[in-house]
Computed example of a mutant assay.
Amino acid sequence: MNYKSIFIDQLNACYNDKSWFIPLHEILKDLNATQAAWKNESEQSIWSIVNHLIFWNEKWLERYNVEQFELKSSINNDDTFYVTPHSINDFEWKNTLQRLEIIFNSWNRALEESEDLKLITEIPTYFNAPWWGIVSNLCIHNAYHIGQIMLLKKQLLNDKND
């Protein structure tokens, strides 16, 4: 087994393969826009966390697909959780879910098509971290937020039943 197959397995476990936890696709599939935008006392919604996951998965995939990249420090992580209030409708929620599916599929494709050596290549502009470390941490980051999404969904459903 190589790095690529491990990370493809991890990404799939996060998005659509039942493994140790319910995958993101299954958690989200029965939610409508109003439910996805519901906030608890933490001020985060499922939708805002999904936007955050899309942002970072897209950003790191964009970096993975180029030979070298510059880190821009102008990214405010809090901004990656933003949901435009006037776009909270089922059409936009479906678009968000499609973007999420596309980014996970794109990561799978990028990993499958890349050379094995790519994952041991160090990134000089990012602390000389190897790509395998970046992708591994991205998978952990995804799993962390999937746990948050699952808890928010449980709170949402409990609030509906009370």
Rank of each mutant, 00 (worst) to 15 (best):
I103S: 08
C139Y: 03
K118P: 01
I103D: 07
N76T: 11
N105F: 07
N105Q: 12
N89R: 11
N105I: 01
T80D: 05
L61K: 08
Y126A: 13
E113F: 02
Y126N: 11
L119C: 06
E101A: 13
E92L: 09
A110C: 02
S136Y: 14
E67Q: 12
I75K: 10
I134N: 05
V135E: 06
Y64H: 04
K118V: 07
L119P: 06
K72Y: 06
G133W: 05
R109A: 08
R63C: 05
G133I: 00
Q68P: 00
H141T: 03
F69K: 01
I123K: 07
W60L: 12
D79C: 06
F127M: 10
N65M: 14
T125K: 09
T84P: 00
V66F: 02
F91K: 14
A129Q: 11
L111S: 01
F69C: 03
F69T: 03
E112I: 10
S114V: 01
K72V: 12
E101Q: 15
Q98G: 00
L117C: 05
E62F: 12
L117I: 06
K118G: 02
T80H: 03
L119K: 05
S74L: 02
L111Y: 01
S106I: 00
E67Y: 05
A129V: 12
E122I: 08
W93L: 09
S106L: 07
E101M: 04
T84M: 09
N128L: 08
T84D: 14
V83R: 09
W107N: 05
E115H: 08
G133M: 09
E113M: 08
E67F: 07
D79V: 01
D79E: 15
G133R: 12
H141A: 06
I103V: 15
K94V: 12
L117Y: 04
E115N: 07
E122M: 05
D116V: 04
C139T: 15
V66Y: 03
R63N: 12
D78Y: 04
H141V: 04
E115Y: 01
A110N: 01
